[in-house]
Nucleic acid binder design. Structure first.
Length: 489
RNA sequence: CGGGACGUAGCGCAGCCCGGUAGCGCACCUGAAUGGGGUUCAGGGGGUCGCGGGUUCAAAUCCCGCCGUCCCGACCA
């Protein structure tokens, strides 16, 4: 039945649409263990490109990769009071090994602060050993009550940076620097605009002094926390005796930071750019940037068209699909599937560009180039194909960011808003509301209770309005903070 | 753990009320034709009807129990 092939539209049911896109575009599949996720090659290819770009950015800012164990002694988690309170409820614990009950249970890392700072304590003696700038690519496990593909899975892949510094100010600078790296990555690569800012105490990381986040708006007008950066102060240093000798001979606890982004970003990509035909992948993250769909009837035509397709792929620099290739090209040589069916399939998978190539084109020394984002078709000469494709890809990257930014702008409210109106908005179409907050956690909690909306963060300067909100969204008293309110994933 | 829905082929579902040889669409396999926006025809493979018990000559269908999944809430990158 033709209806079976159609996606649920985003407007009809955003959640159903999201799940269908993730499953049908072969980003991921459900695993036998509930809450876990199998990331398929198409999805992993995107994650791999994210990793590569971020890894370069981390190295450029002086960080080195290392690897720490999956299993952490339970006692480690308990050394920092806030930390254990935050993570104990969602810990997965190993109690048996080698056929025997273990003397001490081992926790599967929900995050690696404890084991990393335990090791840092051994490595750091002097101020000369600082700063220590480490990153780890790893999987972590958090036993969440409810999961969603990519957005909240029991096990997820991430990157966690951990650093140690001699002073608070240096740690703070690092925390902010890495938040900026995240913003640059998310906007530059995922083409997903984010609002950076500081988390409130209620929302900050368990054990941190301060937490900063990148908040993005999804197409259902809900916020996605896409990355966080924490200034941990000396909390973990004190718990793990991470001390160093200062230049003047005294002993001080080090100052730590940690920061992470995860496979959740793939979900953010889908919910930022997907449309009613499926996924749209920003060119910089697309495992395949251009798919060639050959069109032919007779065997002679088939030979001719495929020969031309291979020649084109080779000239675009992607003959063997190595990463050194200039443009990542795939030729869809499958037999027995009509071109139209192939178009739908590659659109569903989000490949940015498609080149339709048939006997008529070859006779005219051209191909038909189709953009995934606009579905716009144009005939291009095969002589200048490389330049045209490269230009088109970078245009798409920019256009996708601009479109996402426009959409966010249209659903962000900066004018003073009565609380009743806010409630209605959160009950209906949602969006980001920039409004004052008196600083009282009771107001924050009441808003959450009544509307499910929370303070996503206290936005940084660049997002703020010229005229700051003057009163608290909830109680109307004088505002101490300018806050970004929204319902979140 | 509270509220709702549902378990029948890989996926999506019908059949159940009113018991009588297991069905449909998609996908898959074979063959032929087709091929510039989801091809058509013909043939084919595939199911302990979630599990256990009961009623009955006979249970996917009726009854009891259990298990599981999904959605809504509490938790969260």
């Amino acid at each position: 039945m033709a209806d079976d092939k159609k996606l649920t539209t985003r407007a009809a049911d955003f959640s159903a649409w999201y799940n269908e896109v993730v499953l049908r575009s072969e980003l991921a599949d459900y695993s036998p263990v509930k809450g876990c996720m199998v990331i398929r090659p198409n999805g992993y290819g995107i994650w791999e490109r994210m990793q590569r770009a971020l890894d370069d950015m981390f190295k450029a800012t002086g960080h080195q990769n290392a690897y720490f164990p999956l299993l952490i002694p339970e006692s480690f988690l308990k050394k920092e009071a806030e930390h254990v309170e935050g993570f104990a409820p969602e810990a997965a614990v190993v109690t048996h090994g080698g056929g025997k009950e273990l003397e001490e249970p081992l926790v599967i890392r929900p995050t690696s602060e404890t084991i990393i700072y335990h090791m840092f304590a051994k490595w750091v003696q002097s101020y000369r050993d600082l700063p220590l700038l480490i990153n780890q690519w790893a999987n972590v496990v958090r036993w969440e009550m409810r999961t969603r593909l990519f957005l909240r899975t029991t096990e997820f892949l991430w990157q966690e940076g951990h650093t140690a510094h001699a002073t608070h100010d240096e740690a703070e600078e690092e925390t902010r620097k890495m938040l900026g790296v995240y913003r640059d990555f998310m906007e530059g690569y995922i083409a997903m605009p984010v609002i950076t800012g500081q988390k409130t105490n209620a929302e900050k990381f368990a054990g941190a002094l301060r937490t900063y986040s990148c908040e993005a708006m999804m197409q259902d007008n809900k916020a996605l926390q896409a990355g966080t950066s924490h200034n941990l102060g000396q909390n973990f240093a004190k718990a793990f005796e991470l001390k160093f000798q200062t230049e003047s001979g005294g002993t001080e606890f080090a100052w730590n930071t940690s920061w992470g982004v995860s496979t959740r970003m793939v979900g953010g990509l889908v919910m930022t750019h997907g449309d009613d035909n499926g996924l749209r992948v920003p060119p910089l993250l697309a495992p395949i940037e251009l798919v060639i769909v050959p069109i032919y009837r007779k065997d002679e035509e088939r030979a001719e068209v495929l020969e031309a397709a291979h020649r084109i792929a080779k000239s675009l620099g992607a003959w063997d699909r190595r990463e050194t290739a200039r443009i990542r090209v795939h030729i869809d040589k499958r037999e027995g599937i009509k071109p139209g069916a192939k178009y739908y399939e590659w659109e569903l998978r989000g490949v940015p560009l498609r080149l339709e190539l048939g006997p008529r084109d070859i006779a005219a020394n051209q191909g038909v180039l189709v953009r995934r984002d606009t579905r716009e078709k144009k005939a291009v000469s095969l002589d200048t194909l490389g330049e045209d494709v490269a230009e088109c890809l970078s245009t798409m990257q920019r256009d996708m960011f601009a479109a996402a930014l426009d959409r966010r702008g249209a659903n962000t409210y900066r004018d003073p808003m009565p609380y009743d109106q806010f409630r209605q908005l959160m009950d209906g179409q949602g969006g980001f509301v920039y409004a004052g907050w008196c600083g009282d956690e009771a107001c924050e909690a009441a808003v959450k209770e009544e509307t499910k909306a929370t303070i996503r963060n206290i936005p940084d300067e660049e997002f703020r309005s010229v005229e700051a909100p003057t009163s608290c969204l909830k109680c109307g008293n004088d505002a101490k903070h300018e806050a970004l309110w929204a319902k979140a994933y």
